[in-house]
Write a protein that binds this DNA or RNA. Structure first.
Lengths: 161, 161
DNA sequence: ATTGGTGCAAAGGATTTGCAGTCTA
DNA sequence: TAGACTGCAAATCCTTTGCACCAAT
């Protein structure tokens, strides 16, 4: 049983792309760093993609598609809703960001590339990153040889009441 | 740090009801057992609720609202879609079943009351229960005193390719 | 010229809501 | 009879799709 080192994403529609990483990023990412990141993931850097990535990597955060659209257009760029969905699907698929399913109503995209778990406060709706050090150890299951873990999601839901 | 012993559910809309359990159930649940279960959770046993619960607790399973509707109506009962949604919301809220968010498109309801984690095969869409013994240990995070863990979700996504 | 990418509006699909009718204590 | 529950259809909300236009190789 191994400690987890997985950071990846699965898309049913686009296939998946397992991406192991503990990439360190210094937020915010500058434009040149965004460009090399996109290059690293073999994503052609269109204006919209670069602007979306710049917005995402200002800080580690968890954003819905709507919030991303608002954020990007709010800072003066013209990007359509469809492009946000397309781009986030692409980013998630390539491993640039991670999809997080916590809220029944919405997919969140996580711009924190480090291996981590989540703490979700049901009273406030707040979603916080936590790291193995604070959690103790999470061990992976024993699996048949033909199966390979490509992602691990751990969410602790907490209340303050 | 403690080993997890949490089985509960959170509903943003209805509030939540933390429910700790390692309740043992012998599947399938008979009607009389369904009735006492509902009573235990202080849920008044209408025809529809009983029929839905009977369907759910035939075996440990993960079902979407649609599948539940199909299953219940398929076995001869008349239940509306809205009632399925209402009832599953109620059951989940009271702790009778657990919501599982894995598929971006749909909520699954888990009728297995034991503490367990999930293995999701992205190639087949198959969702399997796994237990701590097979996983090693999952430790809970150190938390400020005012926060209390009411639920823990662990999903390992695997591929067979 | 071909391929890839974007934007708009319409479509799709899961879930919720409004409200009238029904049951039950 | 009041309060709880159900059912239907319409509405809502997030996300995807179809398709025309634009950009770059």
């Amino acid at each position: 049983m191994t400690k987890l080192q997985v950071f990846s994403y699965i898309s049913k529609k686009l296939g998946y792309n397992a991406f192991m990483s503990n990439m360190s990023i210094t937020f915010p990412l500058e434009r040149s760093e965004v460009l090399s990141m996109l290059q690293h993931f073999k994503i052609s850097p269109t204006r919209q993609r670069v602007e979306i990535a710049e917005f995402l990597f200002q800080r580690p955060q968890h954003l819905s598609a709507e919030k991303i659209l608002d954020g990007v257009t709010g800072s003066g760029s013209r990007v359509s809703r469809a492009t946000v969905y397309n781009t986030m699907g692409l980013f998630a698929n390539k491993g640039v960001v991670r999809e997080v399913l916590i809220d029944r109503e919405r997919v969140f995209y996580d711009s924190n590339p480090k291996v981590h778990q989540h703490l979700y406060n049901v009273d406030t709706g707040e979603l916080t990153d936590i790291y193995d050090a604070e959690v103790g150890t999470i061990s992976t299951p024993d699996l048949p040889e033909d199966l390979k873990i490509i992602d691990t999601d751990v969410v602790f839901k907490v209340t303050s009441k």
